[in-house]
């Protein structure tokens, strides 16, 4: 494990609805090191993307309140000015978005789009920039970089576009790359290639990668550390083998159980009761997962859930994991 890169402590990100603020990210603490892929998993609406945008400073501060602490290379990012973020984004932090077509400018040639980052953050000569662009395109596995550099986004396939986005994100060799659902819009074979590419880049640049996804297969295949989020909170975190081989929190265990399994095709799948509460209806105290496992008595939950560390490096929220069983009594 490399040195510490990013530390998040008791982060709250709240959005204004009417006159009140509601916490979309509620008391999240985590760390990411160099040379590490940290996956954040959870269903839609659980705060994954909100967390990522808080790190990279993409929230509209007129309607969002961020409190807590985000430390990145001895700098405090909570309350940093837009100018400070401008210096960081692109050069020290890169972001990869889900929809590559929406993230690219349809009217600019690929070369100009990749060069934009270099124009802003470096003062290289224009020949050198041209050379770097071609190297980048080559590094992300595009054949004929010279030709691709002259093309427009609509001329490329989905997988190629996502490679361009990655090339832009890594142009200044950032220490931290945030990938928000980078493969959700892609086919499985392309997905496998993009994940390989991310891993290679992490090795070459010694970067830390935050991989946000809802696909547990992708997490198991790629991540070193895993953070499971539910309703704005981190409910479990640990190494990838801890999470997949000894999942503790009822939410993690329910999610893993609802994957269609190869050995029991056609059987009834496990479905979690109820649904994720809406942001404005989020309960303030008590275990937020409790309404979805109603057969567990109230006494099993903590009044104010806290993080426990039953084994080294493996954290879990609330005490309801201790005697948790599925409704029909079977274990995972």
């Amino acid at each position: 494990m490399g040195e510490e890169l990013l530390t998040i402590d008791h982060l709250h990100t709240s959005f204004k609805r009417g006159t009140k603020y509601y916490d979309a990210v509620d008391d999240v603490s985590l760390k990411i090191h160099k040379d590490e892929i940290l996956a954040i998993v959870g269903e839609s609406g659980c705060g994954k993307t909100t967390l990522a945008k808080s790190i990279i400073g993409l929230h509209d501060l007129k309607r969002t309140r961020i409190s807590g602490h985000i430390g990145f290379e001895n700098r405090e990012l909570v309350g940093a000015s837009p100018e400070q973020f401008d210096q960081l984004r692109g050069s020290e932090m890169g972001m990869i978005f889900q929809d590559p077509l929406a993230a690219l400018n349809p009217l600019m040639r690929i070369e100009d789009q990749v060069r934009e980052v270099l124009d802003y953050h470096t003062d290289y000569s224009s020949e050198k920039k041209h050379k770097i662009v071609l190297e980048l395109l080559d590094q992300v596995g595009l054949e004929h970089p010279e030709r691709v550099a002259r093309q427009f986004p609509h001329e490329l396939s989905g997988g190629m576009r996502q490679r361009i986005i990655i090339a832009i994100a890594i142009a200044c060799k950032p220490e931290l790359i945030i990938a928000d659902e980078p493969t959700t819009a892609l086919d499985v074979t392309i997905q496998a290639q993009i994940l390989d590419l991310l891993r290679n880049i992490q090795k070459q640049n010694h970067a830390g990668i935050i991989l946000i996804t809802h696909d547990l297969g992708v997490v198991a295949d790629t991540a070193d550390e895993v953070v499971v989020m539910y309703a704005g909170q981190v409910v479990e975190r640990g190494s990838v083998s801890q999470i997949f081989n000894h999942p503790l929190h009822p939410y993690t265990r329910s999610l893993l159980k609802s994957i269609p399994q190869a050995d029991h095709p056609g059987d009834r799948l496990y479905a979690i009761e109820g649904s994720v509460p809406a942001l404005t209806k989020m309960p303030h105290d008590g275990c937020r997962f409790a309404p979805r496992i109603p057969w567990i008595p109230e006494s099993a939950h903590e009044k104010i859930p806290t993080m426990h560390e039953p084994e080294k490096g493996h954290f879990v929220l609330c005490t309801c994991y201790q005697n948790f069983e599925f409704e029909n009594g079977e274990a995972v």
Partner: peptide, 22 residues
Amino acid sequence: KRLLAAIPDIHVDERDAQRKHR
């Protein structure tokens, strides 16, 4: 075969073997 090999597997312990196979 290629399509089947590209599905990410949730068995963490076998991921290196799976990657090699792919």
